[in-house]
Each structure stands twice: as C-alpha cells, then as structure tokens.
Design a binder for these strands. Structure first.
Lengths: 201, 201
DNA sequence: GTCTATACTCGGATAGAC
DNA sequence: GTCTATCCGAGTATAGAC
C-alpha cells in the first residue's frame, strides 16, 4: 500500500513552505502554486482565499509550536532531570522545524489581534504547571529562590533564540568552520547545565 | 531656538514607525503618508521608491541594533561586572526600542541576502572580543569552562527574547496583574545573576 | 515643495471550457 | 478536478498644476 498524496496535501505542503519562509504578507499565491507544481486557480478551488489557506497553516503550526512538556513536568522524575528533558524536548521540536519560532512570533507581532490566542493560552497553561512545580521545590529548599516567570522566560529564550537569530550568526559560524547543526547538538547540554547550576543551592 | 522638524525627518519618523511594526512587505506607502500627515506623492519626491525608503530605515536601525558593548568588555572592570553591565546595556537599548530585535531578525529571515552583512559583521566583531576575554578568564581558572559561542548566544537570548516574545506573554501577564515593564525592570538582575552563578567555580 | 489626478503593475480571485 | 484566460482591486509610482 503506497502513500498517495492528494492535491490538497500537496498544496498544504507548498503553502507551509512558502508562508513559513516569507510570512503572510510577502508570500505570493503564484509562488505557492509553482512550488506545488499546479495551477494557481486550483489553490482557490481548494481553499477559496489566501487568508483561509494561511489560517489553515498557521493553526497547524501553532499546534506544533505548543509546548507538550506538561507530561514531563508532571512525571515523577527529579526536578533537575525534568528541566533537562524540557530543554531537550523544546530544542528537538525546533530542530525539526527551525522556521517555526520566527514564523509564529513574527505573525503575532505584525498581527496583534489575529491568532494570538492559541499559542498564548497554551504557553500560559504550561507556565502555570511550571510555576507550581518551581514554587514547591523552592518551598522545600531544594533550589534557589528566583521568580518563576523570569525562569520560564529564560528557558524559552535559551532554547528558541538560536533558531530566531540563525541568519545573523550563520556567516560568523561558517567563517570559523563551525556548523549550526553542531551548535544545536551541543546546546541541550549547555543550556540545561547553565540553568541547573544557576538554581543549585 | 526651537527645533524645526523638516518634512524629510517627518517622513523618516513615520516610515520608521510603520516599517518597524509591520515589516517591509506588509507596510503600505499610503499608511506612511497618513502617519506623516502628508501626501503620498511627497514620499516619492523625497525617497523615490519604497525600497529606498526602507533601506534608509533599515540601515539606521541596524546601527542602533549593533552592540556597543565593546567598550565595556575592554574596560578594566572585574569580569563579572562586565557581564552585568553588558546585560544591562543590551536590555536598556531594547527597552528604548522594543520592536528593534524582531524587526531586524525578521527582515534577515525573509530576506537572507539583503542586509545581513551589517548586523552580522558587527555581532561577529563583538563576539571575538568576548571570546578572547572569556578564554583568558578560563585559562586563569576564574570561571568554569564553557563554550564561548554558546555563552554569547545565551546572553543575547536571555536579553532579547522577552522583546521578541512579548505578544505571546502579554495576555498571560495581564491576567496575573503583572506588567511587561515590571518584568523588564527585574530582568537585568535575574539574567546577570543567572549567568554569573552558572560560571562561578 | 506640495498638491491632485492618474498611469501602471502586480497579485488575488473568478468564469468557463474541458 | 484541472486548466486558460481574464477581471479587478490594491498599491506603487509619475505627470503636471500650483
């Protein structure tokens, strides 16, 4: 049984590629059609308008972007091991879709009203679980007392930033014969060590 | 002697505002004209094309974005104090222009060829100074051994990320009666403590 | 220098044949 | 479902009066 790729799926893949690289405004329907190797009219046949097609992609990608680390945080692993796995999971997710963070954050910037709800609400949910966990550890005297919100932002920043800033550091990396891939490979260890060391009593 | 604002300056300010909020592709010349309260034809009289006007703004903002922390790094302050001031300087810069990091990074994403050179080269220069400094401290056994590149990325990520992700956390913050301003106020201390603690031998 | 009016181009969307 | 041809609006840019 071979996998048959429907026209609709072909279009969605092409749209994903173009939208994620250029953002909504800079993307062209004809580019999407060309990428999908079909006619531009077919786009409209399947998805009516550019807005609807974009909304479809954005919703799907928002899902992917949402942290599915609640299961890690609520497991019975030691706290520092939870942090390590949390970092690992986030970086793994973005490694498989490096455009994702810029795509989501940029769309939220240029479109403050639009789909802010989805990703925001998801992150807020994760944050509440995270905060309760941190406060419990702090009360038990297992870790240093820091603002949970700051800590959460720090973890997200440390994991996402390399992907957001890649174009800026790409040239510098190449000049020194280092690769982005290698950088990311090492990043899980670097970030989790950094966070853990900063919290140890 | 009162400050006279020329038409050209008025246009540049309006263009800055619009471009930085929406990015190049989503910005409209008529919005810029409206913001500047002048006629759209005047835009072209002063700057010929949208591209040229954008290039002007992008160049100016790239300058601002460039880290001017070399003077801090080459001062004779203690190493950890240099780190603290570096964080403080970066956050202060972005606080005065919160759109800046998203504007620059996003343009570099959607336009890989364009103006990557400026900001990239500037950051590369700063990085080399930073790396030498870190390696010297490590050789002297004053701090833990970590990859300087990872550390540099971490510092940048910790300082920039809140501004990049603001739209995502805004709602969550409001829900808990915290303000973004307050968050940023506290961030300098949080970030520098975190970095320093993670490096202490 | 600043305006109004208008030309031109690009890109999203539709009609209609097959 | 898929195509070609075409429409139409939005948005950039120019001409020309003042």
């Amino acid at each position: 049984m071979e996998t048959v790729i429907s026209t609709e799926e072909t279009i969605l893949e092409a749209a994903r590629k173009v939208f994620m690289q250029k953002g909504f405004a800079a993307s062209r329907m004809c580019d999407i059609a060309k990428t999908a190797r079909i006619n531009q009219a077919l786009l409209h046949y399947y998805f009516r308008t550019k807005d609807k097609l974009f909304a479809m992609i954005f919703d799907q990608e928002s899902q992917k972007f949402q942290s599915n680390i609640i299961s890690i945080l609520t497991s019975d692993l030691p706290f520092f091991e939870k942090l390590r796995r949390m970092v690992e999971a986030e970086i793994k997710k973005m490694r498989s879709a490096p455009y994702l963070p810029m795509f989501i954050l940029n769309e939220m910037h240029s479109n403050p009203e639009r789909q802010c709800a989805g990703p925001s609400e998801s992150h807020a949910r994760v944050y509440r679980v995270f905060r309760d966990l941190v406060e419990k550890e702090q009360a038990a005297g297992n870790i240093l007392t820091v603002c949970p919100r700051q800590l959460f932002l720090s973890i997200m920043g440390l994991t996402m930033f390399p992907f957001l800033a890649q174009p800026m550091y790409q040239a510098a990396l190449e000049a020194e014969h280092e690769s982005f891939e290698q950088l990311i490979d090492d990043r899980v260890a670097h970030v989790s060590n950094m966070i853990i060391r900063s919290l140890e009593v």
